[in-house]
Amino acid sequence: MPKNENIILCGIGGQGTILASKLLAAAAMKRGMAVKTAETIGMAQRGGSVFSHIRLGEDVHAPLIAPGQADLIIAFEPAEAVRHLHMLRPGGRVVVSTRPIFPTSVLVGQSQYPVEEVIDYLKTHVEHLTMVDSEQAAKDLGSSKVLNVVLLGAAIRSGALSLKEEDILEAIHERVAERFHALNENALKYV
């Protein structure tokens, strides 16, 4: 039996982490894998830090992942990647969008966000790191709304998952309105 796979998606409420987690789950189910997930739902969706835990495999009891057990972290924002880094297992992979998002708390001086230090931390502490220039991706794809699919594509191609591109593509076809299929397909293959 293949071993369990643990995936964490993290970002900011409104960035599309929940759809990404649904796509991963649907793709895994197509492979016949058992799936359990846990999401942040509620107040934090209003621009707060949010996460999804996705667990694939038969031998899973809890929907949450224990610290140091995630095989893959897909981070929609660099500071959020660092916030969840303690969840990564040794040798795990991080796929991260490098575009920082500044909360008002930083602009009004209530907290700090030293972006370079954060990115450096990722570079020096993550052995298997995939950085995605999401600003460039948005320009090339003509939309900033498919960041989730761009990151999923990068994660799949990194080989960190047993899931295949066509599984995700099929899931997209089932869950996304047809007029967005081409855009999402391009996004999936972007990185």
């Binding site: 900011i12 934090a44 969706q45 621009g47 707060g48 500071a79 708390s105 907290s111 966000y113 954060v118």
Partner: peptide
């Protein structure tokens, strides 16, 4: 960890 921005819901 480097200082991380506080991100409360808004």
């Amino acid at each position: 960890l480097p200082p991380l921005p506080v991100r409360p819901p808004v």
